[in-house]
Lab assay of single mutants.
Amino acid sequence: KCNTATCATQRLANFLVHSSNNFGAILSSTNVGSNTY
């Protein structure tokens, strides 16, 4: 594990990016499902 501020910031940034991608995918699939019905 790294405990430097830079490494922690990069890890946090990566986490936010992945979370945003997952959130966007969920919204996209939900919109497609609602449009189908």
Rank of each mutant, 00 (worst) to 15 (best):
N21Y: 11
L16M: 14
H18L: 14
N22P: 02
A25T: 15
Y37S: 08
S20T: 13
S28Q: 12
L16K: 06
A8D: 11
T36S: 12
N21I: 08
V32P: 05
R11H: 08
A25D: 00
C7V: 02
N31K: 04
L16P: 00
C7I: 03
C7E: 00
S19W: 00
S28P: 08
N22A: 03
N3Q: 04
L27N: 09
L27D: 05
N3S: 09
A25H: 09
Q10S: 12
N35Q: 12
A8R: 10
Q10C: 08
V17L: 06
A5V: 06
A5Q: 12
N35S: 11
S28D: 06
Q10P: 15
T36W: 07
K1N: 08
T36K: 09
Q10N: 12
S29I: 15
T9V: 06
T9E: 12
G33S: 12
T6N: 12
V32R: 03
N3K: 03
L12G: 14
S19L: 03
S34I: 02
N22Y: 02
N31W: 05
T30Q: 07
A13H: 06
T36A: 11
L27C: 04
N31M: 04
C2P: 00
A13D: 03
G24S: 05
S19G: 08
F15I: 15
L27H: 12
V32C: 01
C7H: 05
V32D: 03
T36P: 13
N35V: 11
A13S: 11
A25E: 03
C2Y: 03
N22Q: 01
T36Y: 11
Y37F: 09
K1Q: 12
I26T: 02
T4L: 08
T36E: 09
N31C: 04
N14H: 04
G33F: 04
N21D: 00
G24K: 01
R11I: 15
I26M: 01
S29T: 14
T4Y: 10
A13Q: 10
S20N: 15
T4F: 07
V32K: 03
T6W: 06
F23E: 06
N31L: 01
C2H: 09
A13W: 04
V17D: 02
L16Q: 13
T36I: 08
F15G: 02
S29V: 15
A8I: 06
T36R: 12
T6V: 07
K1Y: 09
G33K: 10
T30N: 13
H18Q: 09
T36L: 14
N35H: 11
T6A: 11
F15R: 02
N3D: 12
S34Y: 12
V32L: 07
I26C: 02
C2T: 01
N22K: 01
V32H: 07
L16C: 15
N31G: 04
N21R: 02
G24E: 00
S34H: 10
N21V: 10
N31I: 04
G33A: 08
S34T: 10
S20D: 07
T36M: 12
S29L: 11
S28T: 09
H18F: 15
V32S: 07
H18A: 09
N14Q: 11
T4N: 10
S19T: 14
A25C: 15
N31H: 12
S20R: 01
N35C: 03
S28F: 09
F23C: 00
N35I: 10
L16N: 12
V17Q: 02
N22W: 03
T6Y: 10
F15E: 01
I26Q: 05
A5F: 07
I26V: 08
L12A: 14
T6R: 06
C2S: 00
K1E: 09
Y37A: 09
S19D: 04
A8V: 06
T30V: 12
L16D: 01
S19R: 02
V17H: 05
G24R: 01
N3I: 02
S29C: 08
A8H: 11
N31Q: 08
I26F: 00
T30P: 00
G33D: 09
T4M: 07
F23D: 00
T4G: 14
I26A: 02
S28M: 08
N3T: 08
S28A: 10
L16A: 12
Y37W: 12
S28V: 11
N14S: 05
Q10L: 11
N3P: 07
A8G: 15
K1P: 12
N14K: 00
L16S: 13
T9K: 04
F15Y: 10
N21M: 01
N3G: 08
Y37K: 08
T4C: 15
T9D: 13
T6Q: 11
V32E: 04
T4Q: 13
N22C: 01
A8Q: 15
N35F: 04
T30L: 04
H18E: 04
L12E: 09
T30W: 01
S34D: 08
R11K: 11
G33E: 10
S19K: 03
G33N: 13
C2N: 01
N14P: 15
G24W: 01
T9M: 01
T9G: 08
Q10E: 08
N31Y: 00
S19F: 06
N22H: 03
S34F: 07
A13I: 03
S34K: 08
N21G: 02
S19I: 09
N35R: 09
F15Q: 05
S29W: 09
S20Q: 14
N31F: 00
F15H: 07
T6L: 08
T36N: 14
A8L: 02
T6H: 11
C7L: 00
A13G: 12
T9P: 10
T9L: 02
L12K: 07
F15T: 10
S34Q: 10
T4H: 14
N35M: 07
N14C: 06
G33V: 14
A5S: 10
T9W: 01
T36Q: 14
S34W: 08
F23P: 05
N21S: 03
A13Y: 08
V17I: 13
V32A: 02
C7R: 00
T6M: 07
T30Y: 11
N35L: 09
F15A: 05
V17N: 00
A25N: 14
A25W: 10
F23T: 05
N35E: 06
R11D: 02
Q10H: 11
A25F: 14
I26P: 04
L27T: 10
Y37V: 09
Y37N: 11
G33P: 07
C2M: 00
H18C: 14
T4S: 13
C2F: 02
S29D: 01
S20M: 07
Y37P: 06
A5C: 15
Q10G: 13
C7P: 00
I26K: 05
L12S: 14
C2R: 00
I26H: 00
S19M: 08
H18K: 00
S29E: 10
F23H: 05
L27Y: 15
L27K: 05
S19H: 09
S19Q: 15
F23N: 07
A8C: 15
C7Y: 04
F15L: 11
S28Y: 12
N14Y: 06
S19N: 15
T4P: 15
Y37M: 08
N14R: 03
C2W: 02
S19E: 07
H18S: 09
L27S: 11
N21H: 00
S28L: 06
N22F: 01
F23Q: 05
A8K: 07
N3F: 00
K1T: 13
T30C: 05
A13T: 13
R11P: 15
C7A: 00
A8Y: 06
V32I: 14
K1C: 15
Q10I: 12
I26S: 03
N3M: 05
N14M: 06
V32W: 04
S34A: 11
N3Y: 02
T9S: 11
V17R: 02
F23L: 03
S19Y: 08
N22S: 03
T9H: 10
V17M: 07
I26W: 03
L16T: 14
N31A: 04
V32G: 05
G24M: 00
Q10T: 13
S34R: 09
V17G: 01
G24D: 02
S20Y: 11
C7W: 03
